[in-house]
């Protein structure tokens, strides 16, 4: 009896400490980032530095005034919104088709969706850059958003696929027998049911684009996104500016992902978390 108690107690300790460790792994750097972004430049450079933020907005204000920073921020938002529209516009119908229709090559298609993530972007960057220059898409927001769409699309398809699969076909059929066309049934029954999930998947696409740095750095020169802009200025920028930039980058991504985490679980079939 004691032994059993000891074992469960020990395994519980291991369980708890791994949770704490994982949380520290993520939250530690985030906390340091927040402390530094919210401290005055002087405080950042002093040693030993304080672990309690001063809530001094000087760094953030300076960051916002930094030449080109606002443009980069706007670019980031535009590209992310375009990515969001493209990946849902293409991904949701694909997800619907995968969950509702049987077609030749369906399984192959599902594997291929994941395979698109198997090619590292750096490998594709040079040919893509050449292609973009030839077609005139280089250094445009729409061109970059197309690249980001290819990154976000697999997730958009898989998330919407699982969302549609979670809606019994009988609901649509019931709507048909109650006087709906196929489109009507979609609009009146399926759409209201998946709208929260679609929103989540759109936000996820937004975050993917928002965080993406490699393609942005390679494919834009004038129209830098925030990530590319920060990367470019990393060497020369003063420390407090880097922290402020990092902070601005991390916060929206973090908030959005936290808001939609339930649906991201759904993508892997664990919908009841």
């Amino acid at each position: 009896m004691d032994q059993v108690g000891a074992t469960t107690k020990a395994s519980r300790m291991v369980y708890l400490s791994s949770i704490v460790l994982l949380c520290l792994w993520i939250l530690g750097p985030l906390y340091l980032l927040a402390v530094n972004a919210l401290s005055s430049p002087e405080a950042i450079n002093q040693f030993p530095m304080s672990l309690i933020p001063e809530f001094d907005l000087e760094s953030l204000v300076f960051f916002m005034k930094f030449n080109g920073m606002v443009d980069a921020l706007v670019n980031s938002i535009i590209v992310a919104v375009l990515t969001m529209i493209f990946s849902i516009g293409l991904g949701a119908p694909a997800g619907y088709a995968l969950s509702r229709f049987d077609f030749i090559g369906k399984e192959f298609f599902r594997v291929m969706i994941l395979m698109t993530r198997a090619f590292p972007l750096p490998l594709l960057a040079l040919p893509l850059a050449v292609l973009f220059i030839e077609t005139g898409l280089d250094d445009t927001q729409i061109g970059l958003s197309l690249i980001h769409t290819t990154l976000a699309l697999p997730f958009a398809i898989l998330i919407t696929f699982s969302l549609f699969s979670g809606i019994p076909k009988e609901l649509e059929e019931a709507a048909w027998t109650l006087g709906c066309t196929r489109f009507g049934a979609f609009r009146h029954v399926v759409l209201p049911l998946i709208l929260p999930g679609i929103t989540a998947s759109a936000i996820f696409a937004f975050v993917i684009s928002w965080n993406e740095v490699f393609a942005s750095a390679v494919l834009t020169i004038q129209n830098r996104t925030l990530t590319a802009f920060l990367l470019q200025n990393l060497d020369t920028a003063p420390l407090h500016l880097k922290f402020a930039g990092g902070f601005i980058l991390v916060i929206p991504a973090l908030v959005f992902i936290f808001a939609v985490r339930k649906y991201l679980f759904a993508m892997w079939g664990i919908s009841n978390r």
């Binding site: 009988e170 019931a174 048909w176 027998t177």
Partner: peptide, 19 residues
């Protein structure tokens, strides 16, 4: 199509619209 047949149907698992 089903909607033009003048029928209505009761399904095994009810198919009540949850929203």
């Amino acid at each position: 199509p089903a909607k033009d047949r003048g029928i209505s149907m009761v399904f095994q698992n009810y198919a009540i619209f949850p929203h």
